[in-house]
Simulated assay, not measured.
Amino acid sequence: MSLATAAIIAAGRRMDRHGWVPATAGNLSVRLSPGLIAITRSGGHKGLLEPEDVIQVDLDGAPQRQGDRPSAETGLHCGIYRHFPEAGAVLHGHSVAVTVLSRLGGDAIRLSGYELLKAFPGLPTHDATITLPVFDNDQDIPRLQAAVGERWRQAEAVVPGYLIRGHGIYVWGADMPAALMRLEALEFMLACEMEQRRIA
């Protein structure tokens, strides 16, 4: 089993323990080379991954072995890797907090004053704010990726994560540990936001 496959399997189990990838939700990937990524096969439970559940695709999402079927959202992983050469791993999950908060309207969620903001580039202190983009869900993945890419081009600073309304979260990092750290930080802050709104 390759190191990339082992990292994806371990990340899937960790995300499953937190309830971030229920049923067949979510997908995970690792960059193998400038033009090749390892990604979870479509339809499997991410907490029960086996080596054969991880396949290889190019940056256009084309599987490298006949018969392999990548996730329908592979194009969103590829979009991240194409746009950010430093990205080494991408995680997509479907937590309760992400799903609920993304359905409340607006094209972004602002997170301010959290200690865990320090998990993001250029933020050495909690005394900061990030704007986490929220995109409308779209089954046309190229069109959704075009909307995401346009927001990246317009942004002065890109937060390494975004939400899809009523659907899930995408987070990336230089490697799997960095991506997991950012996912965990965002999930914690979003859970806090949801709780705060519930008791307000």
Rank of each mutant, 00 (worst) to 15 (best):
D60Q: 14
D60P: 00
D60M: 06
G61M: 11
P63Y: 06
P63F: 03
Q64K: 15
Q64V: 14
Q64D: 00
E73V: 06
H77R: 11
H77A: 09
G79T: 11
I80Q: 00
R82N: 14
R82M: 07
E86Y: 03
A87Q: 02
G93C: 15
V96R: 08
V100N: 08
L101H: 10
S102K: 12
L104D: 00
G105D: 04
G105I: 08
D107V: 04
I109E: 01
R110P: 00
R110Y: 02
L111A: 05
L111N: 04
L111M: 08
S112E: 10
G113L: 07
Y114G: 01
A119T: 03
A119C: 14
F120V: 07
F120M: 11
T125W: 02
D127I: 11
T131M: 05
T131R: 14
T131W: 00
T131K: 10
L132G: 06
F135N: 04
F135V: 02
F135L: 08
D140N: 15
D140T: 07
I141R: 09
Q145Y: 00
A146Q: 10
W152I: 05
R153N: 13
A155S: 15
E156G: 14
E156F: 11
V159W: 06
P160L: 13
G161L: 13
G161D: 08
L163F: 08
L163Q: 09
I164S: 03
I164M: 10
I164R: 05
H167I: 07
G168T: 06
Y170N: 09
W172L: 01
G173D: 06
D175F: 06
D175Y: 01
A178W: 02
L180N: 00
M181C: 12
L183V: 00
A185T: 12
E187H: 09
F188V: 15
F188P: 02
M189I: 11
C192L: 15
E195F: 11
Q196N: 09
Q196W: 11
R197G: 09
